[in-house]
Simulated assay, not measured.
Amino acid sequence: MGAEENLKSLPLEDLHKAAGARFGGFAGWSMPITYPLGVMKEHLHTREKAGLFDISHMQLFDIAGPEAVALLSHICPLDADGLAIGQSKYTFFLNEQAGILDDLIVTRLGGDHFMVVANAGNAAADEAHLRDVAKDFDCRINALDRVFLAIQGPQVVDVLRVAGVPGTELAFMHGFEPKPGWFMSRSGYTGEDGFEIGLPADDARELVTALLADERVAWVGLAARDSLRLEAGLCLHGHDITPEIDPVDAGLTWAIAKPVREKAGFIGAKALLDKIAKGPARKRVGLKPDSRQPVRSDSILVDIHGNAVGVVTSGGFGPSAGFPVAMGYVGKDFAPIGTQVFAEVRGNRVALHVHSLPFTSHRYHKG
């Protein structure tokens, strides 16, 4: 049996097939990569109107109990008790070396009740890690079986209002449970305003039908989701962040509050504090090719003399930026904006310059 046959199917796969999706494997799932609109138009449609994404490959964990706060404050570099009810926070699972096992969004739904959104490729490992650490804490962990949808773009608020979906008053990085079995947050992975909604499959079919009845809404596949997040300078776990990369080199220590660092009660605290004290050995940067040729992940970066100075971790074309875009890691001496480096691409050298991140401005709702 081939690997293709072992891929898990999305609960709404029939709807994607009916919409003409082209499928491909990602993180163990058969995922819609593009629709007939095509990756370029799907990307631009999200930036201009409202893109609808099926992200049911991602995993929701419902965590509750008297020591849920203590568990999350230990397993993540996070002050879970400092979160207001309804507040969401970007955080991580770290290993003892402060490498990033996964990046997550944690939302406080009640005093001792939290929702954690984890990445698809790490779902099984995350669950095992959570359950192993939670053995010492009085709380329960429930891996939810939900359809998970994202709707992203400047017209999403009006689209959801027309469809009668509650929650459009949420501030960015806040979430709640609008109905039994539902979870909704104002967040996303595109740099645009938007929402992510986890809900039972029958409710999801009804919601999708209502949303697609609005001409401003179009299905958007994984390919455009990747170009959107890359333009927004957002990391993809397994590429831009990995268990071998720590938040210091990744430029993500902003997600770890100073009091959390000082308390040092989280897994990997000693290694992280040592790395913060030493400073980054390398830095995650934006990269803009001087030509129209995109560079891909794993391309080695060299200086003008051919000495290796870094690696590309994500790359492609930025439809909104209008030019190829990439992210990668370079030695700190090569990190200043405008520094020239070269990518080794099939025996040729492609010139790039270090570029500020993001490539396109974030348009999150801050109200």
Results as ranks from 00 to 15, higher is better:
E5M: 10
K8V: 00
P11E: 10
L12D: 05
F23E: 08
A27P: 04
A27S: 15
G28I: 05
S30C: 07
M31N: 04
G38C: 11
K41G: 00
E42C: 08
E42W: 07
L44C: 06
R47Q: 10
E48I: 03
I55T: 12
M58Y: 08
A64P: 00
A64E: 14
C76S: 14
P77M: 02
L78Q: 03
D79S: 13
D81W: 07
G86C: 10
K89R: 15
L94Q: 11
L94Y: 09
N95G: 12
D103F: 04
V106K: 04
R108L: 10
V117N: 10
G121D: 05
N122W: 01
N122L: 07
N122T: 15
A123Q: 05
A123F: 01
A125R: 14
A125N: 11
H129C: 02
R131A: 00
D136I: 00
D138E: 14
R140Y: 00
R140P: 00
A143F: 03
D145S: 12
D145R: 13
R146S: 11
V147P: 01
V147Y: 02
V147D: 03
F148D: 02
V157R: 11
L160C: 06
A163L: 09
A163C: 11
V165A: 08
P166Q: 10
G167C: 08
M173K: 07
H174W: 13
M184Y: 02
G191C: 05
I197N: 02
G198E: 11
E206Q: 15
E206W: 03
E206R: 14
V208R: 02
T209F: 03
L212E: 05
E215Q: 13
A224N: 07
D226F: 06
S227W: 10
E231T: 12
G233E: 02
G238L: 05
I241G: 01
V248A: 05
A250G: 11
P259Y: 03
P259V: 03
I267A: 03
G268H: 10
K270E: 13
A271R: 00
K278L: 13
G279R: 03
L301I: 02
A308M: 11
A308L: 03
V309S: 01
T313I: 10
P319T: 09
F323K: 09
V325F: 06
D333S: 14
R346E: 15
L352Y: 06
H355Q: 13
K366R: 14
G367N: 13
